[in-house]
Amino acid sequence: MVLSDFTFVGILILVAVLLPIVGLGLAWLIRPKKPNPIKQSTYECGIETIGDTWVQFKAQYYIYALVFVVFDIEAVFLLPWAVAYHQLPLYALVEAVILIAILVLALVYTWRKGALRWS
């Protein structure tokens, strides 16, 4: 019943899910349960927390995430190239260098525009 190489991954997922269940179940059996409002209040250095937690954050984070997505996709394009590289003729190098050059262009652009500067 070997489906593929991934059978083991499937088995591992099924077994690994048991780990948190068993661990938390065990702890649930033996740990004390005495909740009270003070204990359950949000931690904030001893003072009452003011306002909503879910507020807006710096847009800066978003730009970093965007640059990441672009680079990640480019990296995925490079992987099959890397695997096949030994079987490829010399022009494959040129093609990959063009791809990497475009990638570098993207990096230089975001760098120049100051999008990679933490302000």
Partner: peptide, 20 residues
């Protein structure tokens, strides 16, 4: 043996799923 504390304002389902 430590007590398990869930803060009052937490989103319970997501809060409990994350460590697992």
């Amino acid at each position: 043996t430590k007590e398990d504390i869930t803060p009052a304002g937490a989103d319970r389902i997501v809060y409990n799923l994350a460590p697992g």
